[in-house]
Structure formats: C-alpha cells, structure tokens
C-alpha cells in the first residue's frame, strides 16, 4: 500500500509540480463544474439512466411509426385536419403525460383526445422518469452530508454557488432525460408528417420546452429539498417518491370511492399544477374539472377571476418552498 511506502513518496516528490499558469476561471464555470461533474459521474455509474434513455428513444420511435402509419387515414377521414394539428395532438398529451400517472394508468389523454393511441406509448416512462429522478436526485445533497464532502465544497465556493451547482446538476439530468427526447420527438414528427409551416407549429415546440422545464424545476426543488433534509439517500428518495406518488393518487382515489368521475386533472394533485399551468402557456383557456362528482369550469384567460394566478401561485409556492428548504438547510444546519 502506498501509505506504507515512504521510499516511493521520496521518489515521486522529485518531480514536483508543473508550474501553475495562475489563470482562474469565473464563478459560473465553477458552478457548472459541480453540475457537469455530477451528471458525468451519474452517467458513468448508473446503468438505469442508460436503460431509460434507450427505452425513451425506443418508445418515441414506436410512437412515430404509429402516427406516421395512420396519418393518411386521419387526413382522409377529416379533411379539415392538418398535419400541424396531428403533430400537436400527438405531442402535447405525451408531454403532459410526464407528470401524471393517473392519466396514463387510465389511458386518458390530457384533453386532446386519444385518437392516435399515443397515451399507451409514453405511459410507462412517466413512472420511470420519476423513479429515476428520485433515485438519482435524492443523493445530490444527502450524499454530501453522509460523506461530509460539503465541507470541501464550502471551503471553495459560496453556498449559493453550491446550491446553484446542485440545481444545475439536476437540470442537466432533466434536460437530457425529459426535455431532449420530446424536442427530438417534435422534430421527428415535423419531418415525418411533412407539409407544415414551421412557424405555425413553433408554439408547440415552445410549449414542449417550457412545460418540460417547469417539470424539471419543480422536480429539482422538491427532490433537492428532501435530499437536504437527511443524510440518507434512501430516506430522501423514498419520502420524495411517496409524496409525489401519493399526491397523484389521493384525489382520484377519493373520487373513485365516492363514485365520482375523475375528469381532467385535479388542482390538488401536486404535479397536476404543472399540467394546468401548461394551458396558460399554450393559450388554451378552458379547464373542466370534475372533482368528487361536481363539475367545475375554470376559464383561465378571460380576464375574470384569479384562477390563473392561483395556479401560477400554487406552482410557484412549491418551487419556492423547495428552494427555501434547501437554502435554509445549507446556510443554517450544514454550517453550524
């Protein structure tokens, strides 16, 4: 063992250090180093990430074949339908399905119909994405507490840089695992379906990017908050997963128990807040709710009422709470 060999130490010391250039990179580079290092490390380490991304690409490939095969039939059946609409009707439910297990489990789409049978395709991946996000992300801060590496981070960086670096780390994960496949899917469908003006379908792409980024931010805030609360990756992961999973299950279960129909999505469903907010992003204003058998209609863009702001507020509150917990933990508990 090297720590038993002083002879070897004396030998290597003769070489000493190559001269240091004295050039130091800026603060953003340092934060980025944390993010990138974590992502590369997890990529090298985790077989599940590679399997899932392979699964995602396979599913997207299947979806494309399905959509392209039935494209002509759909266009003949409905002469008013355009390829742009097919693209939108395919992609938007897919993207919204990321955050909702119930939609996928029940085989419902998020409001654009299920004519093309796309909901089956990505259904399983929403659960996998959450599982993997929790599995990988819950160690982001918890592992540093367990391994006591946070002291090394804090001796080199500001604490906010550490937090940003960790958020960035999850953000890379989210972008590679969530955003990128759907953006790729957009372009595959755009090329495959053909006959459409890019500018006309650009809002769909914007929707895909904004919605998936919202998912990334919310996941990051919730997962990092739990990760900062404990030194055990397992506890952090389990708690986060249970919270998110139960949040998706409670209201539909209640509705089912009382014989009510679960209509679209429910505001009390934590991640459904994201789904609802997506209506704001693409300008679709009406949301029908069938909560415990009582139907409600929300018009988010008619300038009347505060429903839209409530949803943005709820969503913001979750992100704010998550980030606040992380900041408090890092600045208070971890620095005592």
């Amino acid at each position: 063992m090297s720590d038993q060999s002083t002879k070897n130490d004396a030998y290597v010391r003769k070489f000493s250090f190559r001269p240091f250039t004295g050039l130091r990179r800026g603060r953003i580079f340092r934060m980025w180093s944390i993010s990138w290092q974590w992502w590369i490390h997890e990529w090298d380490r985790s077989r599940a990430i590679k399997v899932l991304i392979g699964f995602q690409i396979f599913i997207l490939f299947l979806t494309n074949i399905f959509v392209l095969t039935f494209k002509d039939i759909q266009l003949q059946a409905d002469p008013t339908l355009t390829t742009g609409q097919i693209l939108e009707d395919t992609l938007i439910p897919l993207v919204r399905g990321i955050v909702s297990f119930q939609t996928r489990i029940r085989g419902e789409s998020a409001g654009h119909g299920d004519e093309f049978g796309t909901s089956f395709s990505i259904g399983g991946t929403s659960l996998f994405i959450l599982l993997l996000a929790v599995l990988v992300g819950s160690g982001l801060i918890a592992d540093d507490i367990t391994n006591k590496t946070n002291e090394i981070y804090y001796s080199k960086l500001e604490k906010y840089e550490y937090i940003m670096g960790k958020f960035g780390a999850f953000f890379i994960f989210g972008n590679v695992m969530i955003t990128l496949p759907y953006v790729l899917e957009f372009f595959l469908l755009y090329i495959g379906l053909g006959n459409m003006d890019f500018l006309a379908v650009l809002p769909v792409l914007v929707h895909v990017i904004l919605f998936t980024e919202l998912v990334n931010i919310t996941y990051a805030a919730i997962i990092l908050a739990f990760s900062s609360l404990t030194g055990r990756r397992l506890y952090a992961g389990l708690t986060t997963f249970m919270l998110l999973f139960l949040a998706n299950m409670i209201v539909p279960s209640l509705a089912f128990a009382q014989g009510g129909e679960v209509g679209l999505q429910l505001l009390t469903d934590v991640l459904t807040l994201l789904l609802v907010s997506s209506y704001l992003l693409d300008g679709e204003s009406i949301i029908r709710l069938d909560l415990l058998g009582r139907e409600h209609t929300l018009n988010l863009a008619n300038g009347i009422g505060i429903e839209g702001w409530m949803i943005i507020g709820s969503l913001g509150l979750f992100i704010f709470l998550g980030i606040s917990i992380v900041i408090l933990q890092v600045y208070r508990r971890h620095s005592a």
Binding site: F15, S16, F20, L23, R25, G26, R30, S33, I152, L157
Partner: peptide, 19 residues
C-alpha cells in the same frame, strides 16, 4: 474536480491533480 471548483481550467486541473 476540486481544482475546477477553484477555477482551474479542465486540462490544467487534470495535470495538477496528477502532480
């Protein structure tokens, strides 16, 4: 990685880590 957190460029951080 520790070198990069102190602002060393990628190549230099590897060289100095080795040293």
């Amino acid at each position: 990685f520790c070198g990069r957190m102190n602002g060393l460029a990628n190549a230099e951080s590897k060289q100095r880590a080795s040293d």
